[in-house]
Simulated scan of single mutants.
Amino acid sequence: MADIKQMIFFDFEMLCSDNGMAYDMMEAIRLGAVKYDLETESITYFDRYIRPENQEPLSDFCKALTGIDDQDLVGANDFATVFEEFLAWVGGIKKSQYFSWSPSDLTRLKIDAEKHEIPLRTITKIEKRYIDFQAVFKKRVANNNVSVEDALALYGLEFSGEKHHPMYDAYNTLRIYLQFLHEPVQSDLIMLKQFILEDELTSFEKEHLNQILAAHIKFDINLLVNQIRDVYRLRDVKKLFKPINRIVVKYENVIMNRSGIFTDENVRHAELLSTFYHELLQSYEEHVSYRSKIMILNEYLLRPLHVITSK
């Protein structure tokens, strides 16, 4: 894959109805995008209305939701023409990384591209370089699929530009990305509140927040250890995976320690918890392969966790 020289953030507005509409019929009616040059940090913009094949008047619901009126679409080009203009504006598929706030925009692109007989290889090149940034943000910062506005608010920022305008949605997604990229400490502090500490984090002092974090890790591990037995029927072991995984996911970003604010001890304890989970999965799979009826949890699986709770 060629070196990435620019990032493309894009967003579609689509046909819609308050009576419901099959997704494949929700044709794109506006494409907005921003291009961020990694070397110069310059931003350029793209905004086009798209004339859909469905020529029925837009519903009042759709007009209110998208901010688009029938007159906006009368002189617009069809999807194939707008997409050709978009590719010319991009200036090189292979040197670009593509982002949107939810995968629905990529899905829309794929459906409409097929409808308009755009070569599959072109869409495949984009898809290979595509990132659902909402999913990344959920996993690394927010713990939920939040809106663009709510993601900005987590950083103390307000939406910039016109609401329900795909170009401004794309631009504000870029703003969130740049905060995430260049403000790892702030991102990890938000993550702590969203995943683990909720309203407890009243001080951003490193030693204090690590003390609170250590107490949470110890509490969760102690809760886990007290609930685990030595022997299980194999069919009951699967019931352990979901609650243990929920705890492991809470501390994934502590292990990553992208900002470097977490102590080595907290990172190590989070790693021990993750290791326990994956070794339990492996042991379960081995027992299944041997058609065992029961599963005995070996002491070596639990020993690292007992060390933490005994401190």
Rank of each mutant, 00 (worst) to 15 (best):
M1V: 14
A2C: 08
K5M: 00
I8V: 15
A22N: 15
M25D: 10
E27K: 12
I29L: 11
V34M: 01
Y36I: 02
E41P: 09
S42H: 14
R48V: 09
Y49Q: 06
N54P: 05
P57C: 09
C62I: 01
T66K: 05
T66A: 03
T66N: 04
A76R: 05
N77H: 10
V82E: 03
A88Y: 09
A88M: 14
W89E: 05
V90F: 09
V90K: 04
G92V: 06
K94R: 14
S100C: 11
W101Q: 01
L106G: 02
I111M: 03
K115N: 05
L120V: 00
F133Y: 03
A135D: 13
V136R: 06
K138H: 09
K138Y: 08
V141C: 07
A142K: 03
N143C: 13
S147F: 04
L152V: 02
L152E: 05
Y155S: 01
F159K: 04
G161R: 09
G161N: 14
H165Y: 15
P166H: 03
Y171H: 03
N172Y: 00
I176F: 01
L181R: 13
P184L: 14
D188E: 13
L189Y: 10
L192N: 01
F195P: 05
I196V: 12
S203W: 05
K206G: 02
E207A: 10
H208A: 08
H208Y: 13
L209G: 02
Q211V: 07
A214E: 02
A215L: 07
L224P: 13
R229V: 07
R233G: 10
V237P: 06
K238S: 00
K239I: 07
L240N: 00
N245R: 12
I247L: 09
V248W: 07
Y251S: 09
M256D: 06
N257I: 08
S259H: 11
G260C: 12
D264G: 15
E271S: 14
L272H: 12
H278S: 14
L280W: 10
L281W: 12
L281Y: 13
H287L: 08
S292V: 00
I294T: 15
I296A: 13
L301D: 00
K311Y: 10
